[in-house]
Simulated assay, not measured.
Amino acid sequence: MSWWEELSSWLAWVSEALGPLLPYVEMLIIVIVAVVVERVITRRVRKAVRRLELPPDAGNAILLAVRVIILVAACVAILNIGGVHAAWLVSLSALGGTAIGFASTRSVGNLIAGIYIMVARPFSVGDYVRIDGLEGEVVEITMNYTKLRTPDGTTLLISNQKVLDSRVENFTYEGPGGRRLVRGSFKVSFDHSTPSGELEKALEALLERWAGRLPERPAFRLSKWDKGGKEYTFTFSVEKAGDLLAVRHELLREVLRTWEELKAKRS
């Protein structure tokens, strides 16, 4: 007799010996297997989260999804052993899924979007971003919302679904020496009363004086030219997002003062 035949014979004897207790033993085995599988997968997921340096919220969301799947699978198996027909289980699952889908479409969408943001990392906490025209420093990323703090101190909550559906601009970058810097910008239009060469020479001198006050020397470029005048875009960098508003205001004021002085000399 082969080992397979011996095993089959032994299982048949156990089944006959247990009699009415057999379904309960099978349910217990399913519970034990589910617990073991959950422990093994949880350990591996946590190692992967640490290796990939994912945010804690992303790791918790993945673990929650894994546990829900294992729990549902175990419940289906136990109910099937208890005599509940599989067709009924499928029907109830479909009905429940439809109800949940109608009741929480937005919440589920936000959760999925939150997981995507945490994994893809289009921005991180501390970055200065613009989302659908709203800009500020990212102070928190949760499973449902991204929280921004604007330069004037206002706190904005933007749903993660809206973040994915919107254009996102990240103004944070790594500067010289690995310093984390935030880039700011503004545009100024000038008429043609002052020649471009003379204006640009004066602006270069102004920005050179600012070179020692900021992490990087400010710069400007011609961004528009028409019969009515010319438009220049100015860019600058700061180390703290909270300094953007003050630096932008002061630099803009000095640019306008420089232009007014040039106009006064020519008049």
Rank of each mutant, 00 (worst) to 15 (best):
P20H: 04
S104V: 10
I141S: 10
S189L: 03
A94F: 12
M118Y: 03
I69E: 10
K147N: 06
A264Q: 12
T235L: 05
L164P: 01
G114A: 15
L207E: 13
P195Y: 11
F236L: 00
G96S: 07
V182E: 00
V36P: 08
E250R: 13
I117K: 04
W210M: 10
R46D: 11
A103G: 09
V45D: 09
L54Y: 14
K265T: 13
I29H: 01
G178S: 01
I29G: 00
R253A: 14
P218F: 13
E239I: 01
K230W: 06
V125G: 11
L262D: 08
K187H: 04
F190D: 11
V129Y: 01
K147S: 09
V163H: 08
E261Y: 04
I32D: 03
K240V: 03
T258M: 02
N110F: 06
A103W: 11
I117T: 14
L52Q: 15
V31F: 05
D57S: 14
K147Q: 13
G177R: 00
W4L: 14
L251K: 08
N110Q: 11
G97E: 07
S159L: 07
S166F: 05
G212A: 09
K147W: 11
F102R: 07
Y24R: 03
G126C: 12
R217I: 01
I70N: 03
R106L: 10
